[in-house]
Design a protein around this nucleic acid. Structure first.
Length: 242
DNA sequence: CACATGATGGTCT
DNA sequence: GACCATCATGTGT
């Protein structure tokens, strides 16, 4: 761990004796905004082709509501070959290519065309594998890569976890042995969740401004901290969800 | 730290 | 042919 990562050394720790439990179909079968919040603190697990297992705690999500959401690929109920997984059973992986060279990873929720985008993870297990995958992707790697930067963005986490369309799209996270989400004893220790407008979308302003992005306050692995337009969720808003 | 820009190709109109 | 739910790199402060 480099000197600059000392300040965040309380993160990046995964205890192998923690009780781990894979999340089931019932967990995913809830409205999109609730799932986006419920996923915070849970652990994404990926078994790579060579059998190596990487883990990361989910610290940032966004919800895309479907039909009425102008920023959603399934706006107005539009179905295409690409966004079909958004309409599949809750807990289905939706992976798509963006900007010609990156991938984004979503999980479908309850509701037609609704899905949660995973934006950032706190790396936990096998960081060396994540570093290796990120280095392979870069053309020339001069800059030092810090642990907090391994998965702090939707495309970065896909690279670090070996997530692409061919291997992961349309997979059922409740049963597939290549990837799943689990809960451990640290999942509920999250202090504060904040929400903000979603990142990188362009659509009609009312939907662009909606607070549909959620992240763990003060976690160094979150992709972007908004200076304005940030709200703290009241405990009463999330206690029934978590 | 902030901001600007090029890379790169599938998807949809 | 335009549009991207982005990242890496370069320059300037």
């Amino acid at each position: 761990m480099s000197k600059n990562d000392q300040s965040v050394s309380k993160y990046f720790t995964s205890d192998p004796v923690l009780n781990r439990k894979r999340l089931d179909a019932q967990f995913y079968n809830i409205p999109c905004e609730e799932l986006a919040i419920s996923l915070l603190g849970k652990v994404l697990v990926r078994r790579l082709d060579d059998g190596i297992i990487v883990r990361g705690r989910i610290v940032e999500t966004e919800s895309y509501l479907g039909n009425e959401d102008a920023a959603s690929q399934s706006f107005k109920g539009k179905v295409t070959p690409r966004n079909e997984p958004m309409f599949m059973k809750p807990g289905t992986a939706y992976v798509y290519m963006t900007y010609g060279m990156y991938h984004c990873f979503n999980i479908s929720s309850k509701g037609d065309g609704a899905a949660v985008l995973l934006r950032s993870l706190e790396p936990l297990d096998n960081l060396d594998t994540m570093i290796s995958l990120r280095k392979q992707f870069r053309k020339c790697s001069k800059t030092v890569m810090m642990n907090k930067d391994l998965c702090n963005g939707p495309a970065k986490l896909c690279i670090s976890f070996g997530i692409d369309i061919k291997s992961c799209n349309k997979q059922d996270l409740t049963s597939w042995d290549g990837m799943w989400v689990e809960e451990d004893e640290k999942s509920k220790l999250i202090d504060t969740i904040v929400c903000s407008p979603r990142i990188g979308i362009k659509c009609e302003k009312t939907w662009q401004d909606k607070y549909l992005r959620y992240y763990v306050r003060d976690n160094p692995c979150v992709s972007k901290i908004e200076k304005t337009k940030m709200n703290e969720l009241k405990y009463s808003q999330i206690e029934n969800i978590k």
